[in-house]
Design a protein around this nucleic acid. Structure first.
Lengths: 335, 335
DNA sequence: GTGAAAGCGCTAACAA
DNA sequence: TTGTTAGCGCTTTCAC
């Protein structure tokens, strides 16, 4: 059933030109006479010819493929990024070979990407092991760690200024008159969590305050829900919680309101991180720190294209500015 | 900087065997002696050899790549599907070449997929034009329309039983004692909307009721918000609304509660469709119709693999059962 | 089981 | 501008 593949040779024969002429016709910026081009196109149309990108890649040494690794898409931050990244890459003339990966099979996946001759790799996830980036670097392929930072890795990285974002929240919550300010952590090994937490402590310290209590949500809905329960069973429960990302913050608010009968923000303020689309949904109206997703994606693609071009596969680290987005989930001043 | 590529010939030389022996070593189920294999592997490891999947595809005629088209990832239904589909395909030994597409550039995108010799295509979006499926079919490549149905297309399709789902909602809302039951439509040209609406009307009719009013949300947040305002500015506003998908239903609930000061479900019941993860978030607790995403993905992959195998590139249409998931956004009986 | 040889569909010198 | 000629890195007969 598989249609007999039409090759450039078939087209050449039909158009009574050489096979190279056909190749040139389908190569942008190659020199072909208008007449030849016309005849080739006619024959190609007639036969339903479509150049084989794989063969082209094989000889040209450029596959035009970028490998993208993602660990999960539950947290809406990642679909947003994936969509933007994919569109941007397409606009630049590249294709995306996408892989979902668990902590277990990352080796296999990276190996697969490499076999498919990807020209660049984006690793968009907080959970990815860093040795993989090394593997790619060894192959001379640029790698960008998205939303993640590994000091010892040869891979470039694009993050937002998580430290500053956390600091802003620390300041903001103290200025809002809160007295027992707590933190719900993400995945503890992640650079995002480390930086956000460190910045947060700094922000509190600038106002002479220390973190009231802390629990770990591991960037999951369930983890965040349980962390909330843990934090609030104490007699002196928090009157403000900084949650390491929005995805968890929604779960925190749900538990606060539905299980603990606490009002947000009257009883307790909640602040998240990311500014995912749902943050502005009225049911949550979450005060949060915006990660500039578009700028982050642009930086990612820029680094990739830059390194792919030439010899200089140097390590770059783009850190983009964050800003506090004030909505309704946190009090603004002492009541 | 690009590392000098290591080829099978290099490995062969190092292992003192023929290039074919190297090839066989890396081909599952090829006959190689234990000794040869050992030497080849040693040399390969030494040199950092990795087979070139593109060259392999070129000669074998099988790229191992499946093209996946998605139109947007805002609606969480699609990220969920994309993740499951991708994992499933990876588990089956295929890779995903992903494309985001707008109505404008679909031709370009499909062309690109075809040039990359994808062995199958999944089109996951309600907005995709159907002529493209034809293009693929012409190339002898199986296509599955996901969550979408086009009677005149040669492409296979996988959907849930939207008709039955709509019918269940019609019955459910009447049985709940509602008297002014309205509908907020999705994208009007989509098969999902047509079927859900038709089923809904049928479900109402079975109880001797007709749809009270109707507005179009076009499957967008803003569209749904406006549709809600339109519907509720009437003096006899609905006491129940069936919204064509969950994504819009959240916006409907937000407008109802935040702008119109109406209580859900006391003043008005809301029912959605899809059962996306957020539906069970407590702030919404949305009663909805579940689309069996896992089963739908499984069916998709099964159809694809089946058609890719052999000659029979016949059209299949899988319709999977839906079920009503009752939560708290709709009254159960007359108050 | 192994190597030699042919060739997948294409691009890229190189002459003409 | 055009055609000729080599391959890109690999799989796959086919003898041995």
């Amino acid at each position: 059933m598989a249609k007999p593949t039409v090759t450039s040779t078939d087209v050449a024969r039909a158009a009574k030109v050489s096979q190279s002429a056909v190749s040139r016709t389908f190569t942008i910026g190659a020199s072909v006479s208008a007449d030849t081009r016309r005849r080739v196109m006619a024959a190609a149309d007639e036969l339903g010819y479509r150049p084989n990108a794989l063969a082209r890649s094989l000889i040209s040494g450029k596959s035009g493929i970028i490998g993208v690794l993602v660990a999960y898409l539950d947290n809406q931050f990642y679909p947003v990024i994936l969509e933007k990244l994919s569109r941007k890459l397409q606009a630049e003339g590249y294709r995306v070979l996408m892989f979902m990966t668990d902590t277990g099979d990352q080796d296999v996946v990276v190996n697969d990407m490499l076999q498919y001759q990807v020209e660049g790799v984006v690793m968009a996830s907080a959970h990815l092991s860093s040795s993989l980036a090394q593997r790619c670097a060894d192959s001379g392929i640029p790698v960008v760690l998205f939303n993640r930072y590994v000091a010892t890795s040869p891979a470039s990285s694009v993050t937002s200024d998580n430290l500053e974002g956390g600091r802003l929240v620390g300041n903001f919550l103290v200025d809002g008159g809160h007295e027992r300010i707590s933190y719900i952590a993400g995945f503890e090994d992640s650079s995002t969590n480390r930086d956000r937490e460190a910045g947060f402590h700094k922000g509190l310290a600038e106002r002479g305050v220390v973190c009231h209590s802390r629990a770990v949500g591991a960037y999951t809905i369930e983890g965040a829900a349980q962390a909330t329960r843990d934090l609030f069973q104490s007699k002196s429960y928090p009157d403000a919680v900084f949650v390491a990302n929005d995805h968890m913050a929604f779960a925190v608010m749900d538990v606060l309101r539905s299980e603990l009968n606490l009002n947000v923000p009257d009883d307790v303020s909640v602040v998240g991180f990311d500014d995912v689309p749902q943050s502005k949904w009225r049911a949550y109206d979450l005060t949060t720190v915006e990660q500039p997703s578009t700028a982050m994606v642009d930086a990612t693609v820029e680094i990739l294209l830059d390194q792919m071009g030439g010899e200089n596969i140097s390590r770059k680290a783009a850190v983009l500015p964050t800003k506090l987005v004030v909505r309704k989930s946190a009090r603004l001043s002492k009541t």
